[in-house]
Design a protein around this nucleic acid. Structure first.
Lengths: 192, 192
DNA sequence: TTTTTTTCTTAAACTATGTCAATGTTCAAC
DNA sequence: GTTGAACATTGACATAGTTTAAGAAAAAAA
């Protein structure tokens, strides 16, 4: 059950058996079905979730009720509303399973406990956060400097499986364009 | 010299005198004049820099030679190309002082040393990174869901001093629009 | 299977924003 | 102070992307 996650962690820090056991004892399994909400707008995010299997999206609903997908999480990545989770404030995002998924979740206070007991995990989290930050930076840069068509190519390359897994309008939302325009980009591309 | 930074750190972790001294011994002061480069494209970022005084910008030059400002750093914030700094790869960003500035810099390897010797700093860095990440998330959301005009209002609110400190075309670049269009937004606003 | 719902495509009209070029303004250097 | 460079404004035009609406295709439900 936990192999993938442990392997993921061991890319960053070295754990012995006892530490591994302690860590896994803090986790809880959660299975969600396609369409299930992991987090609704206004709730406080109590868990950080590691995706062991499946795929989820985090999205922001703006003042006009428009949805903007801000993150996809496939296998081997983490997802929560970090603002809400870190600062214990009501969430602006909502998180939904795009397909049936299996998660390993750690609760906010238990994570704090973990940091106290095994400070090495501070490092793990720091390193993961750094990579998160960097990858968000790349999104920002892409949004500022690439056209919609280029952004689509980037996403296709970065999430090759995603394209077949989820409806295209979600991808349109993620790259910040209307579904109709994405459709046009695709047909333009195909006819060349 | 180091008071502001130490105060900043003590918002996150508690340091005794010896730890404080050790930490400050790892820093180096650096003064830069307006227009000086802290980092050029292609160089590897060796330092993370804390802005004690002044103001800098980080920007990305795209394939067409267009500049896109991705971060402003005023007093009491950190700036470097984190991708380059963290992974020791050539930088895609360049960092320039917008006014005469004073920095406290920590070198990559010394930071690693610091983490080994005082693991508490892992926590500090993790917490700072979390906040960085969250604020980047806000940029992304703003870019995806707000009009140029709204983005300008947000920046005006978030960096009230900046508006008078630097040329407007830098702000236009930061919110992802042309300088001409920002000028129009402003005149439109003024005439109401 | 048939029906219903969701998703995808296409096209026309429209809007926000970009580009170019000319003019005016501010600011730093001499 | 004068000059030159960087910056800001304005207008005319171009374009990327949105909106609306309709129908086709695919997926889910019955």
């Amino acid at each position: 059950m936990h192999e993938l996650l442990i392997k993921h962690i061991s890319n960053y820090i070295r754990l012995d058996k006892e530490e591994t056991n302690y860590f896994t004892s803090l986790l809880r399994n959660r299975k969600v079905k396609k369409g299930d909400f992991l987090l609704r707008r206004g709730e406080t995010a109590r868990y950080d979730s590691y995706v062991d299997k499946g795929c989820l999206k985090a999205s922001f609903i703006d003042k006009n009720g428009e949805e903007h997908v801000v993150q996809f999480a496939e296998e081997n990545s983490w997802i929560t509303d970090y603002d809400s989770f870190t600062n214990s404030t009501p969430s602006n995002l909502e998180i939904v399973a795009l397909v049936d998924s299996e998660l390993l979740q750690i609760e906010h206070d238990r994570l704090a406990q973990l940091f106290e007991r095994i400070p090495k995990f501070e490092r793990f989290y720091r390193l993961v956060k750094e990579q998160h930050y960097i990858s968000l930076y790349c999104c920002l840069i892409s949004l500022l400097s690439n056209s919609a068509e280029e952004r689509y190519q980037v996403v296709k390359q970065k999430y090759p499986m995603l394209i077949n897994r989820i409806p295209q309008h979600q991808i349109a939302s993620f790259i910040g364009i209307s579904p109709e325009y994405l459709s046009r980009i695709r047909s333009r591309k195909a006819s060349l």
